[in-house]
Simulated scan of single mutants.
Amino acid sequence: MTELWLMFSGAFLAATLLPGGSEVLLIGLLQQDNQSWLGLLIVASLGNTLGAVTSYYLGRAGRFAKSPADFDNKYYQRSLGWFERFGVWALLLSWLPLIGDILCLIAGWLKLPMVSSTIMIFIGKTVRYSLIVFVFMAAI
Rank of each mutant, 00 (worst) to 15 (best):
T54Y: 05
F71M: 04
R60F: 05
L58W: 02
G47Q: 15
D70M: 04
S67F: 08
F71P: 10
Y56F: 15
R63F: 01
A65G: 06
T54H: 01
A69E: 10
G28W: 03
S45D: 01
N73W: 09
D33P: 14
R60N: 12
L29M: 05
K66Q: 07
G47E: 13
N48C: 04
L30D: 00
L41A: 04
L58V: 14
V53W: 07
N34F: 13
N73H: 13
D33T: 03
L30T: 00
G51L: 01
W37T: 02
A65W: 15
K66P: 00
D72R: 11
G28K: 06
R63A: 11
S45T: 05
Q35H: 14
F71I: 01
A52F: 04
L30C: 01
A44N: 01
N34I: 11
L38V: 13
N34S: 14
T49Q: 12
Q31C: 10
L40M: 02
D70H: 12
L30W: 01
A52L: 05
Q35S: 15
G28D: 02
L46D: 06
G39W: 10
L38Q: 04
V53K: 03
L40K: 01
I27R: 00
L29D: 00
N34R: 14
S36Q: 15
A52E: 02
L58C: 11
S67L: 12
S36K: 15
Q32E: 10
L38Y: 04
L38H: 03
N73Q: 09
A52P: 04
Q31F: 14
R63Q: 14
W37R: 03
A44T: 03
L30N: 01
R60T: 09
A65T: 10
P68R: 13
L50Y: 07
G39I: 06
A52C: 07
D70P: 00
L40D: 00
R63N: 09
S36V: 13
D33S: 13
G62E: 02
N73K: 08
F71D: 05
